[in-house]
């Protein structure tokens, strides 16, 4: 564990609390892509299958994994059951099969072993790297977003960005080589946030509304 990874994980945690706060205070999931949230459930469940093996890393690791799985499923419940009327599927139109299929193929080509843990792990890494796309696509379509929603996406972007210095730090301080799958997918994932991040910094953090240029 190092400073960047801890800060990244805390940022990831914060993003989930921001999302829960947004849904509960506005009593609405307007502006949130249900498809992206479904993808995160798939990501967490396929990545954390090692929970079933009881190959224990640390209490921190186990608690965080259980929290990510539990909270992501709870968010689906909020969107589909509790606040269902506020969810508008007509603007959440990204075709996620175009993400799931290629990620499945990639995980069969690039993995750390043909086992029931490694292939889903690899799949989840590739899928996480593109899971935000339905959300960004929705933002693109509506052209604007509630400020709290942009804080949610920004916290997710910060989490991904912080994992990059974490890997650089680990490269120089540990002797494990490079987790090429995680690093390449992680860089792709971080790059997807750049456009959003630019508008977030130049508009939202200056006190303006998040609006895309026409």
């Amino acid at each position: 564990m190092n400073f960047f990874r801890l800060l990244g994980d805390l940022s990831h945690l914060a993003s989930i609390f921001i999302l829960l706060h947004k849904i509960q205070t506005t009593r609405s999931c307007r502006g949130i892509s249900f498809k992206t949230q479904v993808l995160y459930v798939v990501v967490f469940v396929t990545r954390y299958l090692d929970l079933l093996t009881f190959q224990f890393h640390s209490i921190y690791n186990t608690v965080m994994k259980l929290f990510f799985i539990g909270s992501s499923i709870y968010i689906l419940y909020l969107m589909r059951v509790r606040f269902r009327p506020t969810n508008d599927p007509s603007i959440d139109t990204f075709r996620i099969e175009y993400l799931l299929g290629p990620c499945a193929v990639l995980s069969l080509i690039f993995n750390y072993g043909y086992t029931w843990l490694e292939i889903p792990w690899s799949f989840s890494i590739f899928l996480e790297s593109v899971a935000i796309l339905p959300q960004l696509f929705m933002l693109q379509r509506t052209g604007e977003a509630e400020t709290i929603t942009t804080h949610y996406i920004a916290a997710l972007g910060a989490y991904r960005a912080l994992y990059i210095p974490n890997w650089i730090f680990r490269y120089f301080t540990e002797d494990n080589g490079v987790d090429a799958i995680a690093v390449v997918a992680g860089i792709v994932q971080t790059a997807l946030y750049v456009d959003f991040g630019w508008i977030y910094f130049t508009k939202v953090l200056q006190g303006q509304k998040f609006e895309l240029p026409a």
Binding site: D9, N61, K65, F110, N111, Y112, G113, E118, D179, A182
Partner: peptide, 10 residues
């Protein structure tokens, strides 16, 4: 690909 992996990251 060689097994990296502690998979100790979240």
């Amino acid at each position: 690909v060689q097994a990296f992996a502690a998979h100790d990251e979240l």
